[in-house]
Computed example of a mutant assay.
Amino acid sequence: MSHPEDEDPAALFRAAIGEVTPLRKVVTPPPATPRPKPRARMAEQDEQEARGEFARLLRDSSPLEAGDTASYRRENLPPRMFQRLKRGQYSVQDELDLHGATVAQAEALVRQFLVEAHAHEYGCVRIIHGKGLQSDGGAPVLKNLVDRLLRLRNDVLAFHSAPAGQGGTGAVLVLLANR
């Protein structure tokens, strides 16, 4: 009497399944045209939506021109503090330069910059948006984006175009609320 452990497992398997016919190997030819390079469709869609949102903001309010002063003050901020900001008398603790950024990139950069400014408990920061002299269609895109974004944020007490020696109408000084 033979024990099951003495038998070859492969022989047992072949005996169990019986006669087999091997499958014919099918060779598929490579595609005639190469696949297109992948596109960042979601990034393109986000950029398109940001442009649409920005265009809506510009339609709803008159856009700032290249030489216009960007200015905003919350009602609860004392006028004296706002005057000091306008004169550039607060020490700038950090700076963000948006030159060369797209609308979507600039929006993300500004939001991240302000989050980090709060994490470091900065009181005054500068955002350089440029004057927009190179903008298509006339209105400086990044300048208007920064103006609209800052107005919507609860953590911004005030902002004003920088004095001439600190960037003039191509930059904005931002006074941030403490936590």
Rank of each mutant, 00 (worst) to 15 (best):
A66H: 08
F113A: 07
A119P: 01
L85Y: 03
L149W: 04
G100L: 13
R41K: 14
V103H: 12
D94T: 09
F113W: 06
S62K: 07
R84A: 09
Q134M: 07
R84C: 00
A139Y: 06
R73D: 02
G67L: 13
R151Y: 11
D46T: 15
A101R: 15
V20S: 07
R84I: 00
G123P: 00
Q134L: 12
E116C: 04
L149H: 03
V110P: 03
P78M: 05
E47R: 15
L133V: 13
D97Q: 09
V115D: 14
G138R: 11
G123H: 03
R126E: 04
R56K: 12
P78I: 06
R80I: 03
L133N: 07
R39L: 14
A50C: 15
F82A: 12
D46F: 14
R73P: 01
A55R: 11
A66M: 10
D97K: 05
L57V: 03
V27W: 08
A101P: 01
P36D: 10
V115W: 07
L57D: 09
G88S: 09
V20D: 00
G100D: 15
Q48V: 06
A104C: 12
L64C: 03
P140C: 10
E121H: 02
A70R: 02
L23D: 08
Y90G: 10
F82D: 06
L85N: 09
Q93N: 00
K25T: 13
H118P: 02
L96S: 09
G130F: 06
K143I: 07
C124H: 04
V20F: 01
N144W: 06
P34A: 10
A40I: 01
T33I: 04
E65F: 01
C124M: 12
S62P: 01
G130W: 02
R41P: 02
P38H: 10
A106D: 13
D97H: 13
Q45W: 14
Q83P: 00
R41W: 14
I127N: 03
K131W: 05
F113S: 06
P79Y: 03
G67R: 11
A101E: 13
R74F: 05
D94R: 08
D94C: 04
R111P: 01
P31V: 04
R51V: 14
A32V: 14
R126S: 08
F82R: 03
E121S: 03
F82T: 04
A106K: 12
D136N: 10
A139Q: 04
V115L: 14
F113E: 05
